[in-house]
Design a protein around this nucleic acid. Structure first.
Length: 376
DNA sequence: CGTCCTTTGAAGTAT
DNA sequence: ATACTTCAAAGGACG
């Protein structure tokens, strides 16, 4: 039982979340890069173009894999190094957030109708409002009040939930001063949700808790519903009601995803690029250019997202969404079904390694990242 | 319309 | 224990 194996002191792998940091030498270099000036952008674009040149190799995928693997090995090396730091964080930093500015970052706008964040109230806007916001992200004003020992709105269903297989985070009970009742007793304030959301047709969690993270399993479009659909116009709601879909609870966003959400619009504006694959490459490089502290903010946010997600959906498993779009029913995939996509992907990798057709994106990069971008 | 691309990280399965 | 795979977001491209 993997979930249990990480129990005890581990907090959803929080201790491992600091592993992505670079070594000191590179760190310095990255810190310099981190001054995101126009020059930085030019560098990034230049790098992107260079990458595209590299990627012309038929073994692009393999090369990338190799690089990734290298990087991960490197991360592992630093896992040890950072472990002490991480533990310190669990014991100290997380109990008293090291980033007093961000805990209330994204609360107001989408969840308080027609409200907006006071620009002066935030140090960091972690999630781009223009892109809407991940439902859980938006659930995370990260005030400890939400986990106060006396939850203001305790959904009755939650404590009655049976068959809970997600372990309760030790850290959670420690950090949020949880009552000794377990998951069912921990209930974040539902004041995060706008009333319209509370009444939404799709946002009903198995526990009975309405939540925007639950979206109809209608493929990719669910993303939009995720961000904007929670405030769907009545017409849309009617339409959705007509064709009810099995709700899908999305994975909580990891640190990098949170970072991407925040920075995407910025990069798009700077680059005048819209292609997400290219944007993501830039964001990936920027991510590595972040300082420890900057990354830590997102790791912390991601950690809390996972915590909250686990509280809200104690029975949810990442596996539920594996091929959910194909099965239509989350969590019903058999072990026989499990390998289908896997094999497909393996075949694809073999294809690329044996000089298969070039990706459309490679072509795109050659065309979309021409020299004129370097002049910025 | 569904899938791919591309990134990192979390969590799952397979060996 | 380690390796590998899937999925989170995003939106244009493509079959």
């Amino acid at each position: 039982m993997p979930q249990l194996s990480s129990g005890g002191g581990d907090d959803l792998g929080a201790n491992d979340e600091m592993i992505a940091f670079k070594d000191e030498g590179e760190q310095e270099e990255k810190i310099q890069e981190n001054a995101f000036t126009e020059r930085d952008l030019a560098d990034l674009k230049s790098s992107l173009v260079n990458e595209s040149e590299i990627n012309q190799s038929p073994n692009t995928a393999a090369v990338r894999r190799g690089q990734q693997g290298e990087h991960r090995v490197f991360q592992d090396k630093h896992r040890e190094h950072l472990e002490g730091v991480s533990k310190q964080q669990d014991g100290g930093m997380y109990k008293s957030p090291a980033y007093p500015g961000y805990p209330f970052l994204m609360l107001p706008d989408p969840y308080l109708p027609n409200s907006s964040v006071s620009p002066s109230s935030n140090k960091v806007s972690v999630v781009q409002q223009s892109h809407g916001m991940h439902p859980l992200t938006s659930l995370l004003p990260y005030s400890n009040d939400h986990f106060s020992p006396s939850p203001p709105h305790l959904p009755t269903d939650m404590s009655q939930k049976t068959g809970v297989h997600r372990h309760q985070s030790q850290d959670l009970s420690g950090y949020y001063s949880l009552p000794p009742g377990g998951v069912g007793q921990i209930t974040p304030s539902m004041s995060w949700f706008p009333h319209s959301l509370m009444l939404g047709p799709s946002g009903v969690h198995p526990t009975g808790i309405p939540h925007p993270a639950i979206v109809p399993s209608s493929g990719k479009q669910e993303h939009d519903q995720y961000d904007r659909g929670m405030y769907m116009k009545p017409q849309m709601e009617v339409k959705r009601e007509k064709e009810p879909k099995k709700p899908v609870i999305k994975k909580p966003l990891n640190a990098f995803m949170l970072y991407m959400k925040e920075m995407r619009a910025k990069v798009i504006a700077e680059c005048t690029l819209k292609e997400s694959a290219a944007i993501n490459q830039i964001l990936g490089r920027r991510w590595h250019a972040l300082t420890r502290e900057e990354q830590a903010k997102y790791y912390e946010l991601a950690r809390k997202e996972r915590q909250l997600h686990m509280q809200l959906y104690p029975t949810w498993s990442a596996r539920d969404n594996y091929e959910a779009g194909l099965s239509g029913v989350a969590g019903e995939k058999s072990k026989a079904d499990w390998g289908k996509k896997k094999r497909r992907k393996r075949e694809k990798q073999q294809d690329s390694n044996t000089g298969g057709k070039r990706s459309a994106f490679a072509t795109f990069k050659e065309e979309a990242a021409p020299a004129h971008l370097l002049q910025i």
